[in-house]
């Protein structure tokens, strides 16, 4: 099982612990872990698309940044592409890729609140919705990853910010 899949499973486990009286710690860790499951899925897939050298595959993941990845997801989620990306994507983004990008956008601020905002209160419906959303994003990614636009998406996660300079 990949690290991403293990993280998703762990997030699910955390939502099931103490079902009747979930602790804030469990809910926060579940949200954060679900986000990192998606983060590591993206990093693994993008690294595989970019490099084949085993040594580089250990180094490239360190180059990914949360904000850059968020910015890369935004056009795929909203359908608002700018040049030069606009020339590389089809007129209509596959719905599965839209779902994947939206899930990352949706989870990132939640993970930020879970990890850093001590005033935020998490509830079980929201947390379960996040974890299930990531689970569905994993399934959507499996369906769409063979399409050429998926490679554009993966490469933009690492390099998209530089294309906008």
């Amino acid at each position: 099982m990949s690290l991403a899949a293990e993280l998703l499973e762990t997030a699910g486990y955390l939502t099931r612990r103490n079902q009747n009286r979930p602790t804030q710690a469990d809910l926060r860790r579940a949200v954060s872990t679900a986000y990192y499951a998606l983060f590591h899925l993206f990093v693994r897939e993008a690294t595989a698309a970019l490099v084949t050298d085993p040594g580089l595959r250990g180094l490239v993941p360190r180059a990914f940044g949360h904000t850059d990845m968020r910015d890369a997801c935004e056009p795929f989620a909203s359908g608002r592409f700018r040049d030069p990306l606009r020339t590389l994507v089809p007129a209509t983004t596959p719905p599965d890729l839209v779902s994947v990008a939206q899930a990352f956008l949706d989870l990132q601020p939640a993970r930020h609140a879970a990890d850093y905002d001590t005033t935020a209160a998490f509830n079980r419906p929201d947390t379960l919705a996040f974890v299930r959303q990531v689970g569905r994003a994993f399934a959507a990614w499996d369906r769409v990853k063979g399409e050429p636009v998926a490679t554009v998406f993966l490469v933009s996660l690492l390099l998209g910010r530089r294309w906008n300079r």
């Binding site: 935004e74 989620a77 909203s78 608002r80 956008l105 949706d106 601020p109 939640a110 509830n123 419906p125 929201d126 919705a129």
Partner: peptide, 10 residues
Amino acid sequence: GRIPYVRFRP
């Protein structure tokens, strides 16, 4: 241009 963040509140 706003991103919707949907949350659930009992």
